[in-house]
Design a protein around this nucleic acid. Structure first.
Lengths: 128, 128
DNA sequence: ATCATACTACGATGATACTCGTACGTCAAG
DNA sequence: CTTGACGTACGAGTATCATCGTAGTATGAT
């Protein structure tokens, strides 16, 4: 149970996504979702969640026979960490470059572009 | 020398950044830059570069006694890969969320915001 | 020729990630 | 009370990452 959790690994992030979308879940719940995409043993997910609990990435409620796990940090907070981390490691802190990179890899529709402008406006409003 | 190189690890990315900024470099060149930030042995950088060469992340010119390394892929291409990868793994492919995350972690100035709008405009122009 | 310097090659080590099998406990139905 | 279904705990195997020490080779200066 470390105080501030480390950057989640690939497998851990996949599990976190499930928890974020489903809310508090049992191992069985998570396993069903994961195994649907890629053949995975139940105990693999279990072990993963135990480790994640150790790291402080998830919280565990043991009051039930089937323990219930939930993400320790909200989705947007974690996303922010990951974006900031990549920003530092690969983009020299240049937000513009990151945005450009994201735009060019994913075909972004006109609608989404408008949405992005709205995001910028909103952000600027909260700035001053 | 794998055909399409895998996602670079943290240490590898750090070295790639040096190569991108310096251009073709010897191990010594790279080591000097790396060691300035964090105490690191020469042979660590050497080994790293050998492995990266094996993976196809860098190319090696052995014609000189001191081998000369250069990044196998251009900076922007790699950045795009990384952004796209994160986009898929953590942001459900939503560019808007990624941008939002990037904005909120790094204090972005008004000037940069204007720059970002320009980036959006330019991207849209090339779209239709 | 000898010697110090600079360079590459490579094995070893410890840490972490990921996966799975096995052991074991609990509980309800028969 | 036995059995089967379901749950957790945990050790172990394999792979990758990151770091470094040692060995050996080439080069240039004395």
């Amino acid at each position: 149970m470390r105080a501030n959790p480390p950057r989640p690994t690939d497998a851990e992030l996949e599990i976190l996504c499930v928890l974020w979308s489903r809310g508090p879940s049992t191992v069985r719940d998570v396993h069903e979702v994961i195994a649907a995409r890629k053949p995975t043993q139940y105990t693999t997910v279990l072990k993963q969640l135990q480790v994640m609990s150790e790291k402080g990435l998830v919280r565990r409620d043991e009051s039930q026979r089937s323990h219930v796990y939930q993400a320790a940090r909200p989705r947007d907070w974690t996303r922010q960490q990951l974006a900031g981390d990549l920003l530092q490691r690969a983009f020299e802190g240049s937000t513009g470059s990151l945005v450009m990179g994201a735009l060019s890899v994913q075909k972004t529709s006109k609608r989404e572009l408008a949405e992005l402008r709205r995001v910028l406006d909103e952000y600027e409003k909260g700035l001053k």
